[in-house]
């Protein structure tokens, strides 16, 4: 058995008659920061949603910490820290209420001082009792990140989670995620910002039409432009498809 924290085997997802994921295989080792890139509609978000349990696994297998997500969803999800989309946050709850609820859902009594400290660090400390509906998009994103980081989960799933943040918050979060990473946390990170991916990730996978068509290790892009590598690979695969 592989020692990967996250294992995805032949994952296939069909949505509204379209096969969005067409047999994904990936391993994410403990302590690894894995990037996911791809054009819009290539299947990144669907992959993350399948791994976190928002979409049921239709075919194939997702294993988190050795637990099959379909067979043992509760223990499998305990290892996950999921960053919700801002639109999924309950707008009538204050951040404090939401964090308490989220903590309770994860088996704790309420959110702890470390979570509130994180809110402070992200400039949300003053807004704790404000309804989330009154938050800006970036603030909601930060609120989601606080919830995702709650309880030091061994695996973080981040889907474009830094994209709406102001530069200062982005730097702070990057540092924070770096600390978690160095402490052994694995991160699956979907993004379109190649500079971010290049700076943070140990490995990057590229998706196109629900398939992984390329991947690069940190050593491979060292001194090179990851975006150029991706575009070249994408052009090649699209050219191949055109030939066929």
């Amino acid at each position: 058995m592989s020692d990967a924290l996250l294992q995805v085997r032949n994952l296939r997802i069909t949505l509204s008659g379209r096969e969005v994921l067409q047999g994904i295989d990936l391993d994410l080792a403990a302590g690894e920061w894995l990037g996911l890139v791809g054009a819009n509609g290539s299947g990144k978000t669907t992959l993350v949603r399948s791994i976190c349990g928002r979409l049921p696994v239709q075919a194939g297998c997702v294993t988190v910490s050795g637990k099959d997500l379909a067979e043992q969803p509760v223990p499998a999800k305990q290892a996950l820290g999921v960053c919700l989309e801002p639109a999924a946050l309950p707008e009538d709850l204050s951040l404090r209420q939401f964090l308490d609820l989220w903590a309770w859902g994860k088996g704790r009594k309420a959110c702890g001082v470390e979570d509130l400290a994180l809110c402070d660090a992200l400039d949300l400390g003053e807004e704790l009792d404000l309804p989330l509906g009154a938050y800006s998009l970036g603030m909601k994103q930060k609120a989601s990140l606080v919830a995702a980081l709650m309880g030091d989960p061994p695996l973080l799933l981040l889907d474009e989670s830094l994209s709406n943040l102001d530069p200062l918050s982005r730097v702070r979060l990057r540092e924070l995620l770096g600390e978690r990473h160095r402490a052994g946390c694995s991160i699956l990170y979907c993004a379109h910002e190649f500079s971010e991916l290049q700076r943070c990730c140990d490995r990057v996978l590229a998706l196109e039409e629900g398939r992984i068509f390329a991947f690069w290790h940190r050593e491979e892009w060292s001194g090179r432009d990851l975006e150029a590598l991706f575009l070249a690979a994408l052009e090649e695969i699209r050219g191949d498809r055109g030939d066929r």
């Binding site: 928002r54 509760v74 999924a88 309950p90 009538d92 859902g105 994860k106």
Partner: peptide, 19 residues
């Protein structure tokens, strides 16, 4: 409407009975 959103959100938490 809110309950529907809540059900979607609970899918990512380690809660039993979700399925």
């Amino acid at each position: 409407t809110k309950a529907g959103a809540a059900v979607r959100v609970t899918r990512v938490l380690p809660l039993s009975w979700g399925r």
